[in-house]
Amino acid sequence: MALSPRRGMADDGSAGFEDWYRREFPGLLLFARRMGAGWQESFDLAQEACAKAYPRWAEIDEPRAYLRVAIRNGYFLLQRWATEELLGEADLLAAPVEGGLRQVEFHDQEVVIMAAIRRLPPQQREVMAWTVDGYRPAEIATMLDKPAGTIRVNLHHARAALKRSLAGLGGDHDA
């Protein structure tokens, strides 16, 4: 598997971590959010995953994927306890201010897209979260140890649902 730690590289220490963190952390947090986590929960999951990876940073081959796997594993473990179901958008408002993440101010378009992804069934939601971050079905399949065909089917359904639910945003390029 592509994500197993490299051997014999531990001496590099954590060189490069901080730059990587500044660049990639927002994406990690958004990944957790698209998976279905609350805002603060997304921050906490991403931050804990980074803290665990940091001491062995030089051994991790593909940190973007490695940390996303760690985040999704943590998220699903917590979900198994708190239920499999997707939460509504109510927790957008409930996010406490303290502890690392201030209220995120999305434009309407981002609110709608985030909500549409989070409304997908869990497996489609996860495949979409990976896809938005640039991963191909074959790569997702390897990381999650699932058949690539399953990933493709989920992606197909997810995209079909988004094409419908985001129809109102067609041709809207107000950026």
Binding site: G38, A82, D91
Partner: peptide, 10 residues
């Protein structure tokens, strides 16, 4: 259930 960690913390 269902609840989020954010709700648990609150």
């Amino acid at each position: 259930k269902p609840f989020s960690m954010d709700e648990l913390n609150a």
